[in-house]
Amino acid sequence: MWAWFHKWSSPRWFYQLSGTLLPWLAVISLAALIVGVAWGLMFVPPDYKQGNSFRIIYIHVPAAAVAMAGYLLMATAGAISLIWRIKLADMVLKCAAPIGAALTFLALVTGAIWGKPTWGTWWVWDARITSVLVLFFLYIGIIALYEAFDNKEAAGRASAILALVGAVNIPIIYWSVEWWYSLHQPASISFTGESSIHPQMLRPLLLTITGFYCFFGWVLLLKVRNEILHRERSTRWVRDLILSR
C-alpha cells in the first residue's frame, strides 16, 4: 500500500502516466461535448413550461457539478499535501483552483442568463446562488493566497488549509435547495430513485456531464504536467526528456 502510494506521488511517474491518459481524456471530452451539445440544442423538444431557455441546462448543470466536484478534489489534495507533504498533491491543489474558478463563473453566468427568461430576473440572493457565489470567492481566495507568499511551501500550506475549511460550503450548496425556500429548482437527476427529468432530455445531459468531467481532467493534467516540468527542472529525468525531443 505504501509502495503504491509513493509510486503514485512520484512526479516523474505521474508525468509518464498522465502522458498516456491525456489523449483519451481529450478525445472523450470533445466527443461527448460536441454530441451532447448538438443533441441538446437541436434535437430535444423544448420544455413544456420553460420553452427553449431550458436548453441552457446542458452547460449549466455540468459546469456547476464539476465546479463542486473539482473543489472536493482540490480539498482532498490539500489534506494529502498537509498530512503527508506530498509535492504532487500540492501541485494538484494549485492547478485545480483556476479551472474550478472558471467553471463556477460559468455556472453563475449561465444561471443568470437562464434566470432572466425563466424567473424574470438575472439574480436573486437565495441560498443556492449565494452559496455558489461563495464557492467562486473561495476559489479566487485560494488562487490569491497561493500567489501572496514568496515561500511556496508556506503558500501551499495556507491554501490547503483554506481549501479544507471552505469544503464545508459544498454540502451547503448541494442541499441548499431543500433546506431553504428557493427560486432555484431542485435536482433533476436522482441517484437513488427515479429522476424527475424526462429520459429524452436526460440522455444528452449525461453526455455533457461526462464531457465536462473529462474536460476538467484534461486541463488539470495539462497544468499539473507543466508544473512538474517547472519544479523538477533541475532533475536528470527532465533534462533527458527535454534534450531528447
Binding site: 440544442l41 423544448p46 420553452g51 427553449n52 431557455s53 436548453r55 441552457i56 442568463i113 437562464w114 432572466k116 427568461p117
Partner: peptide, 8 residues
C-alpha cells in the same frame, strides 16, 4: 428559439 435565442 421562439424568442429565447439570445439567452441560449
Amino acid at each position: 428559439m421562439d424568442g429565447h435565442g439570445p439567452y441560449v
